[in-house]
Design a protein around this nucleic acid. Structure first.
Lengths: 189, 189
DNA sequence: CCGTTGGCATTGCAGTTGTATTGGAACGTC
DNA sequence: GACGTTCCAATACAACTGCAATGCCAACGG
């Protein structure tokens, strides 16, 4: 059975093209042909690696999540061992906010998928798991009497800042100022 | 020139149908025919009142904004004169959060439009004006040395809570707890 | 060396899309 | 009552969609 190409790599290449299309024309513009054209391949190839469009979408969503995860672990890794909680949290959030150019692209796609999953509950479970994991992690770092509520607070703040950044309602400076103001409240002294 | 029907009312009826479709199948499912079917009218009628699909979308977006505005002013109106700042802010935010059933529907459409405008900058300006107006209003109510940052903070928190509520990541109780925790920080004493 | 198998391009198809066009019914104005 | 205008339904059309079917080509196992 001859197998020369790396299946996973091809899928990732296609998902990349999908994200490029989705990032600057929206998820509605994502079609087999558009994605294939953006990837510089034939639609047959796309069909070969994804039996259905939904399969392709699901995979692309997993790539989006993976990218965020990667950015997060790298940023935290750069901090060294046992950083102070406030710095750790700030780094975590800054890493996930769409501040740079390619993180903006990722964010746009993530926002599109958010609206997408709001309508397709079967695809929402993975995202939900991500946020509950984040919630637990953040709650473990926060001082105060009610870390769970404070964690939900901080995570929602991050999400809102991300949305407003993507839509151009907030400037990066504004967003960071708001974040720091919040951390000032959360870490008194 | 015979004019028997109320132009604005018809447009609103169509926009209602559009929002119903968008709320439970997403914006991608919004087509002239679907909207017409949901409204129980012919596609010709839809075309008669909106020369193009984009015109229909833009109008629907304005209806979404208007609905939020109405809910907001009604909730604040119920408060009477000169309510304490914290109560006023909480009421404002609770009114805009997708907690009830029909406010969830509105929220879903709003979220879909958020992703929509993230890709079509020409449609984003009205939303941007809304948030800057909100920012100014909230900043005027907040104590502390940096009300602007605190306002951006609070508004982003609201947006994030809304998103997580719509996606089912947060329960209403969680969201309200997070909100109150934040207000506790913002209004010490 | 040859058949089999995976990789991929091409084409076809039925269904949906936005929009333009056509036609007629209902109505106010003269 | 005739006329013009508005309202709306029906249909036509080209472009696009997801998907299936087909066929060619290279590569590997026997």
């Amino acid at each position: 059975m001859p197998k020369k190409v790396d299946h996973q790599e091809r899928r990732r290449l296609i998902a990349d093209a999908l994200m490029r299309v989705a990032a600057d024309q929206g998820l509605e513009a994502v079609s087999l042909r558009h994605v294939a054209a953006a990837a510089g391949v034939s639609t047959g190839l796309v069909q070969h690696y994804f039996r259905t469009k939904d399969e392709m979408m699901t995979f692309a969503l997993s790539v989006v999540r993976e990218r965020s995860r990667t950015r997060l672990t790298e940023a935290i890794g750069r901090l060294g061992d046992d950083p102070p909680a406030r710095l750790l949290l700030r780094t975590l959030i800054v890493a996930l906010l769409p501040l740079g150019e390619q993180s903006r692209e990722n964010g746009r796609v993530a926002l599109a998928f958010l609206a997408y999953t709001a309508v397709r509950p079967e695809a929402a479970s993975s995202l939900r798991r991500d946020t509950t994991a984040m919630l637990r992690f953040i709650a473990g770092l926060l001082p105060g009497p009610a870390p769970a509520a404070a964690a939900a607070n901080l995570l929602a703040l991050m999400e809102g800042l991300g949305v407003y950044l993507l839509c151009g309602h907030y400037s990066p400076d504004q967003a960071l100022a708001a974040l720091d103001a919040h951390l000032d409240l959360q870490f008194p002294g």
